[in-house]
Design a protein around this nucleic acid. Structure first.
Lengths: 331, 331
DNA sequence: CTGTTAGCGCCTTCAT
DNA sequence: ATGAAGGCGCTAACAG
């Protein structure tokens, strides 16, 4: 059942059917009703593919996330998808991993599929090939980055991580914790957010703990239960350390498990703070103090920006969101 | 840059370019190389939209999950997407919620978008309108269900939950736990899996605890920290109860938090068992005993079935996977 | 207000 | 082995 069939049965031209579908106000009520009746009767729905070819629009947005299994990404993808659907768009989800080649591959795929826009969530740091291709695509297709910056012309929404770290370390100071350290995730690819958090931590330490700066403030560890045993050892040989800021909640949550195993009293003997405020932080045996990334705000703004870009409007490229420290039970 | 441009520059017809793209073996090596060189030079990539219109194929699969924020769904969606990509398909992800109207809406959307197939994950139970529409669509488009059965002609991959419950309750018996109960999630829509698990529990109780059957074996509660305080009360007034089987891991994990609050000794005074074996079960303060749903197996089989169906092969409709009880630290 | 018609970019049959 | 041409379903001028 296509537009010709409907036109024939309704005794009008395909143009009229098309108008009823897309600009009902431009067709006389009488014929409109006549056509609509046929449409309803046969349950006719226009093909998005044909429409896409004719209009060069697909009403489809590509969403690229590194890994949907990460609850932070899952939450983002969910919010993005729901918001897009409510605005008449639907979305192709891509798990790009952190590999630049994979991201590149998905860029090309989305481009070939004719998506109207792309939202790219998370990392991608310093890969020349990817950046070059991005710069090109960025001219012909609307792209908005979340938690990422690529080159000089990208539109991005990012979290002001440094501000978040200032809040959490300031809190530790106010609670008289003497010596915070920072656990950084050891990863194959360094990300902007990761660098920014680390710098934010050091800056906050300098501000709140001016006499503390030494090389041992930062441990770089794989996000892994066994690896985290090293933290226990570290704590034993650095008894003054009484608080830990993790790069993200998932890491902190894994550490809580290890800490429990060694009967470390949290928060009395050790404060633990995560970053992101994923839902899970409420379900650990002590709910995890964390820094709310305000992901929903990121997503909503990103979509607003994207839609404006797709409509040809110019938008502000640099968009920062201030996160918020949330005290729970581990600090 | 389209196929005409390439044809012109290569001094051949569009048909030849198309052949180089799709059936390279049918074109003389010399011309093939000539054309390919032009294609590479201009980085030409054919439009999936035009191709879709011409071939009536999109190489796109719709993946419908109730809510990607649920880690079980996220994991499934990830596995499905990765597997599909490796086979040359890409996927549109839909968060359908549990509402039948939403699912219906997404069915229509995917249909309009011309997806080659659909994988529907999870619930949908007893909604007539949805079922009717499903039966219709099921004739014209390849659909495979995971964890769900709709009508009599659907192809599905489901978990043999009863077997899983038999394993877990059998284990409790072997460890001399005296009185297991079952916590069912109170939800707006009852699902096949939910019913099957409950029945499996009752059946296993009858088998391993023949003298125990009473109305108090099953509590129906919302998946919610506050609501779970009721379990604590229940345990106080039913001191013989020493083990709980939850409907799924996420519920059990929330309960662990409540149990911790009341200093309930797990597993000494109370065994707790989940269902699904999501990653998180390894990171609770005591890792959660659970029943491995074998989701990867589900996904792989579902995709194999789907691809066969899309190729017009007939497949086995009823596919059962046997789950596996995994003892961890809470039992 | 409505109809005619020429694309949109690609594939595919039918000739050659 | 290659080219010519029609068609996929819809939209959007342009006429009328």
């Amino acid at each position: 059942m296509n537009i010709y069939d409907i036109a024939k049965k309704a005794n009008v031209s395909t143009a009229t059917v098309s108008r009823v579908l897309n600009n009902p106000e431009t067709v006389k009520e009488e014929t409109r009703k006549k056509v609509q009746k046929i449409i309803d009767k046969y349950g006719y729905k226009p093909s998005h593919i044909a429409r896409g070819l004719a209009t060069n629009k697909t009403n489809t947005i590509g969403i690229m996330v590194p890994d949907i299994r990460n609850p932070f990404h899952a939450n983002s993808a969910f919010l993005l998808e729901q918001n897009l659907v409510s605005k008449g768009y639907n979305s192709i989800l891509c798990n790009t991993s952190e590999e630049p080649e994979q991201k590149l591959k998905y860029f090309e795929l989305l481009n070939q599929k004719g998506v109207d826009g792309i939202i790219l969530l998370g990392a991608s740091y310093g890969d020349k090939v990817l950046e070059e291709r991005f710069e090109e695509l960025n001219k012909s297709i609307s792209i908005v980055l979340i938690n990422n910056i690529i080159g000089d012309n990208s539109t991005f929404v990012i979290c002001d991580e440094k501000n978040g770290l200032d809040q959490s370390i300031g809190y530790l100071k106010s609670k008289d914790y003497k010596n915070p350290i920072y656990i950084q995730d050891k990863q194959k690819y360094i990300t902007r957010a990761s660098v920014s958090k680390k710098e934010g931590f050091l800056k906050a330490i300098k501000k709140y703990y001016p006499n503390l700066i030494n090389e041992n403030l930062i441990l770089e560890l794989k996000e892994d239960l066994e690896e985290y045993e090293k933290i226990i050892e570290f704590l034993k040989s650095n008894v003054e350390v009484d608080s830990i800021q993790f790069e993200k909640d998932t890491s902190a949550i894994k550490f809580l498990k290890v800490a429990q195993k060694y009967n470390i009293e949290i928060p009395e003997k050790l404060a633990v703070i995560g970053f992101d405020n994923i839902d899970l932080t409420n379900y650990t045996y002590k709910s995890l103090s964390t820094i709310d990334h305000k992901i929903e705000e990121h997503c909503n703004i990103a979509i607003d920006l994207l839609i404006k870009k797709m409509n040809g409007e110019t938008v502000k490229n640099n968009n920062y969101i201030i996160p918020k420290f949330i005290k729970k039970e581990t600090s």
